[in-house]
Computed example of a mutant assay.
Amino acid sequence: MAHIDYYFGTQSPWTYLAGDRLEQIATRHGAQITYKPLDLLQLVDRTGGVRPANRHPSRMEYRGQELTRWAKHLGKPLNLKPTFWPVNTAPSSYAVIAAAKAGGGDLAGLVQSFVRAVWAEDQNIADDAVIRAKLTAAGFDPELANSGLFVGAQVYERNLEEAVEAGVFGAPFYIVRESDERFWGQDRLDMLDQHLADL
């Protein structure tokens, strides 16, 4: 059975556009997914990238065009200028980590609900009420928003360190453990699908 380490940020528009395609691919090939939320801005700093706020205007203009094109191509609503972006991703990431540990709910749905909240629902994913509502909707105990803070903070930091060591530099980023094949971006999911078929 193949195992995919999935590195992502809960405010990443590209993670939002990935939707549930990773999960569909994993189901098709009988692969397991380990969800690894991390601080994308720190990852960018650590791996030689440039934060969006510091990028040249031409790069940001092109980014906007690409996001719009992909959203249209995938049939997904997208607000290019969400009210709550950038946002502190630690609280939502801690919730994902706590939910993964607790089990029993729809973890993939929870992850997707956070990125959708930013880019399609104009919600603040650092707000406790929003986090609790997303946990509940995904079938988890909303108290995980508070009970998992200490462990969440530890794992969140560890995910960043593991990402840097594993060669991750953006999100979404997928690594197949068995082959150490790395795929950066939601536009590489078809290639991930083919790689799993070839294993």
Rank of each mutant, 00 (worst) to 15 (best):
P57E: 07
F150S: 13
V118F: 03
F173Q: 00
A31C: 09
T83I: 05
N146H: 14
F114V: 01
K76V: 09
G109K: 05
M191K: 07
L78H: 13
E162R: 05
E23G: 08
R132H: 08
F114N: 01
Q123V: 08
F8P: 03
V50C: 08
Y16C: 05
Y94S: 06
P13V: 06
S179T: 15
G48D: 11
T10W: 08
H3A: 03
N124D: 15
L38K: 01
L38R: 06
Q186Y: 08
G109S: 05
H29E: 10
K72Y: 02
S93A: 14
L160M: 03
A95T: 02
D39M: 10
N159D: 11
Y16R: 02
D128I: 12
L192A: 07
D122C: 09
L17E: 01
L67P: 03
V115S: 13
P77D: 04
T10S: 14
G148Y: 04
A163F: 08
N88P: 02
A138Y: 00
L192S: 05
I131H: 00
A102K: 09
G75S: 11
G105K: 02
S12C: 13
N88D: 14
P37D: 08
Y7N: 03
P82F: 12
N79P: 07
Y62G: 05
L199R: 10
A166V: 11
L149H: 04
D45R: 15
P86T: 10
L40F: 11
Q65L: 14
Y35I: 02
F150T: 09
N54R: 13
N124Y: 08
G148A: 07
L135C: 00
L41C: 06
V87N: 14
A26W: 13
D193C: 04
A90R: 13
P142V: 00
F150E: 09
E165P: 01
A95L: 07
A120P: 01
T10Q: 05
Q154R: 07
M60Q: 14
I125G: 02
A2G: 05
I131Q: 02
A197T: 10
A171P: 04
L135H: 00
S179Q: 11
R63M: 14
H3R: 14
R182K: 15
T83K: 11
L107K: 03
D190T: 06
L107Y: 04
E23R: 06
Q42V: 08
A102Y: 01
D187W: 00
G105F: 05
L189V: 02
E165V: 11
E162Y: 04
D5E: 15
P77E: 11
R21I: 08
T83H: 06
L22C: 07
D20K: 06
D45G: 14
Q123S: 11
N146L: 12
F114T: 00
D20E: 11
G64T: 10
F173E: 00
L160Q: 01
V168C: 09
D193K: 04
D122E: 14
G64C: 09
F173K: 00
K76R: 14
N54D: 15
K101Q: 15
E23N: 13
H56K: 13
R55W: 12
F114K: 01
L144M: 01
L78W: 09
